[in-house]
């Protein structure tokens, strides 16, 4: 549609969304639920990267850590402190789950920035599944730990009685929007960043078609790609951090529902 129209008009071809297509790895056939695809490949790249950082990096078990071990310890310390600070001492029981989520999202975002890579977290299916898993887990934990008192989360006792029903409606809506916003925030950030980089990269090819105009546009767009890439590295970390920290916040709400 739009991309095709532009491509024909200027001689440039923009396919900013092609990088997100799920393709089978070994054949051109249809994608069945069991077919190994590029998603599979990059999911296991994430697993291997985590293995390399957290397991291979710490194989020395040194008292004085080397570089990779101190990186692993830093990520451990960061998430451990986050869970302890936000969800409280009793939240530390769920630390392995949150660490798994963090390492997954972090490496998915970072590995997706490699050229020719596939960004797993740019897919609503993946982020939506993660967010729904977090949402359901947290809700179940909330009801198991607090029983009916978990509903105090929606009944704001500090507010005047008259506006409590209104607040309750708003709280319920915002509670159920959580998985949606959690998943779309992550996927949207990833889609937007990668698409913008692809669009700038498309402009960089202008010098091949129109050398006069391209001499002006190409350096600017290459600089823009570099700048966006740097920004995307920051975003990749921040989105992993935000996903994790919001999970901790939801966990805190489940463990201590009273405001």
């Amino acid at each position: 549609m739009a991309t095709e129209a532009h491509g024909e008009a200027t001689g440039l071809s923009f396919h900013p969304m092609d990088q997100f297509i799920v393709r089978p790895l070994f054949s051109d056939g249809p994608v069945h639920w069991y077919t190994p695809t590029n998603v599979t490949l990059w999911l296991f790249a994430i697993v291997l990267a985590t293995l390399a950082l957290l397991v291979l990096g710490t194989r020395g078990r040194a008292i004085v850590p080397n570089r990779s071990q101190s990186m692993a310890e830093m990520s451990y310390g960061m998430i451990h402190k986050m869970v302890g600070d936000i969800a409280g001492k009793d939240g530390l029981k769920y630390f392995p789950y949150i660490m798994t989520l963090f390492m997954f999202v972090l490496f998915a975002n970072f590995l997706g920035l490699l050229p020719m890579a596939f960004t797993v977290t740019s897919h609503i299916a993946v982020t939506g599944f993660l967010a729904l898993a977090v949402f359901l887990t947290v809700t179940v934990i909330g009801f198991v730990k607090n029983g009916a008192h978990f509903l105090d989360l929606f009944w704001v006792r500090s507010a005047p009685l008259a506006i409590r029903p209104v607040l309750a409606v708003i709280e319920v809506i915002s509670y159920f929007v959580r998985p949606l916003s959690l998943s779309i925030r992550l996927a949207g950030n990833m889609i937007a960043g990668h698409a913008v980089i692809k669009v700038f990269a498309g402009f960089a090819a202008l010098i091949l078609i129109n050398p006069g105009l391209g001499a002006l546009v190409t350096p600017v767009s290459i600089l823009a790609v570099v700048g966006m890439y740097a920004f995307e590295i920051l975003v990749a970390f921040i989105q992993a951090y935000v996903f994790t920290i919001l999970t901790c916040v939801y966990l805190k709400d489940a463990l201590h529902p009273s405001h």
Binding site: R185, Y241, V242
Partner: peptide
Amino acid sequence: FIGMAFAEALGIFSFL
């Protein structure tokens, strides 16, 4: 970061 994430999410919604 939580505040930024909430503010940013709405922009991402418009992108969506």
